[in-house]
Design a protein around this nucleic acid. Structure first.
Lengths: 352, 352
DNA sequence: GGCCGGTGTCTAAGCGCTTGCATAGAGGCG
DNA sequence: CGCCTCTATGCAAGCGCTTAGACACCGGCC
């Protein structure tokens, strides 16, 4: 007589357990005001009927979807994919699922903007990874009362997690400086027009300040800006090494992908890494080991965890309307591999 | 008097337009049995109230979530991230959102299995990218009546899209063979225990058959299997080139990531690509150009589009309970870059 | 003029939960 | 022994939509 076809609802469980649906709901969700024996019985019956609360019904009634959105500018790029994956895992552990908002720009035209229909009553919160939110989007998010935490940059009145970009780039630069390099170039990222995104600026500032701190000359033509792609970095490196005289003996890269492009370019030009040129990156990319790349590692898992935690806090706080934004900074770590070494002894030193 | 705070519901629109909620629902969803004038009025009122149907309520009432799940074994790897991104875009164009099911194996233990709670009443369908479904999962999917389309492999009684793995690998192999290479190695992927996943097997078979077709000897020790990572490919390449005698003059790789690992290894060993060894891959990875990699390109956008289309068909067909699985094969294309060239003239040819 | 088939619209019954409030017992207390 | 306080449970009103079926109205037809 048991209906194997139709999945059982809370009503079935209530009937089978001889209680009201309200009690079933309470019992199964671990709320108080349910006697231990009733709870146990309800649980057993629910199990037997392999009852599972309908998420859509639950959402409608409770107003919560247990889904969060993750906004990324380029879902297929390594950094974003890695971060997304880390977030998805952290969220899964907390009982949430992740909706993908890939706002990658179409060939023509700017990136996709978040809309009310993507968010409203759809997600309990949003994690935005390094995407410069427009003023309109920020207002939208405020309007639909969706908490946000940002990764990699800060949003007004929102929690955020990220690494210390300045410190990471400073560590990378100081590393080659400590090895004795004095002719050091920097390949970074183009500065974003959006003021909120500080990574390109901060990393570059760290580089220039590290150079200046040692009293070394700062050459503008040795500070290059990419679109973060290895290809672009490759091309810039070729130009740089062809035209510069003297040539830099070390190149600090704002990311490992940039560094990989640079390494490939150097090899192509017949320059040895690190014999002729040292290269250091930031990230600890999956392929960094392959390139023997010295780098400053950032921890995706930790960032995903923190972002998840902060978002849930924001959600909870919103309900109590008692929200205090927080900033969490995750440590980075210098990983020394084979792409950096002291500069080759110069026959001409210039000094004296 | 207008409540800017509370978002308007269908009831508000109905009142303001002087019709019943049923009419609003019909009018807004473009159903028939609504007079043009009424429809127009309802539309205008809805606009004015900036009404948006609550997705949770709609889902509860209609039984559809307009969300699909994408199952990937490693969300952060390039292939999966690219495919996911393509799917997300194709689905977005069709009014669906994408829920991420990253089933990446934990350090210890197998991969995460899909559960009823991840699927039931949550997604209208699932696209599974190259993940070997267990028998339990297949049954689960059947049980919850969630249509599935698979990418990169076939599932019994379900639609699928993919490239012709055999043809792709055959093209790659024939390419180096046509260039005159006779000492050719293959670095592929370990064969999956799951019978459904044929990519590793098919690509390898294409290689061996191409070799045999030309009457060339097949050396087992020149057929290597990786876990798809460049690092593994790198290590295998180093071993191969150190131990083999004679050495292969060309290496066919089952993917571009493998090919990149191989190229890096060769460079490290002081071997030129393509002067000493030609390398060909499959995929046309974002970084393939950087490595000047000759490769067989596969089109992610087309695959994502097709998968989306097939899934929507499956969903529609399921409602009419008239489903016919389909298999769509997307063409691949040889992209010749600089990593392949005729073999260097051998002083010893061995022949006669 | 009565009958009929369309249209356009409404009524109301769900969809399957959550939750505020009412209530029935069970003790504890004076 | 009556009264009050708690605790465990039930009742029922939502949550905001979809949709089957009822119904009114209209013109056309014999």
């Amino acid at each position: 007589m048991a209906q194997r076809s139709a999945p059982s609802t809370i009503v079935d469980v209530a009937k089978a357990a001889g209680v009201s649906v309200a009690t079933v709901s309470r019992a199964l969700r671990g709320m108080d005001r349910v006697s231990p024996s009733t709870r146990e019985r309800v649980r057993r019956v629910a199990d037997e009927l392999s009852y599972l609360a309908s998420p859509t019904a639950t959402s409608l009634a409770s107003g919560q979807t247990r889904i969060i959105g993750v906004v990324v500018p380029f879902a297929s790029r390594w950094y974003f994919a890695s971060m997304m994956s880390a977030i998805a895992k952290a969220m899964r552990d907390r009982g949430y699922q992740v909706l993908l908002f890939d706002v990658e720009p179409e060939p023509c035209g700017g990136r996709l903007e978040l809309t009310r229909s993507m968010l409203w009553k759809r997600v309990d919160g949003v994690i935005s990874i390094n995407v410069a939110m427009t003023e309109g989007e920020l207002e939208l998010l405020r309007g639909v009362h969706v908490p946000v935490v940002s990764i990699g940059y800060d949003l007004p009145d929102r929690s955020s997690v990220g690494i210390d970009d300045y410190a990471a780039a400073r560590t990378a630069t100081d590393h080659v400086l400590d090895l004795g390099h004095r002719e050091v170039a920097y390949i970074g990222a183009a500065l974003e027009p959006n003021e909120l995104v500080e990574t390109p600026r901060e990393r570059r500032r760290a580089f220039t300040e590290a150079i200046e701190k040692r009293g070394l000359p700062l050459r503008d033509e040795w500070i290059l800006a990419t679109d973060w792609t290895p290809q672009h970095a490759h091309d810039l490196t070729v130009d740089l090494m062809r035209s510069a005289s003297p040539r830099p003996t070390a190149i600090v890269c704002a990311s490992d992908e940039i560094a990989m492009g640079t390494c490939l370019a150097l090899t192509e030009l017949g320059l040895g890494v690190p014999e002729d040129v040292s290269v250091v990156g930031i990230d600890d990319h999956t392929m960094a080991g392959l390139f023997s790349l010295t780098t400053v590692r950032q921890d995706f898992v930790a960032q995903g965890e923190q972002a998840a935690a902060l978002l849930l806090e924001s959600i909870a706080a919103q309900e109590r309307s008692a929200f205090q934004p927080q900033r969490v900074v995750i440590d980075t770590e210098l990983i020394v591999r084979g792409s950096t070494a002291p500069p080759r002894r110069q026959d001409s030193d210039g000094s004296g």
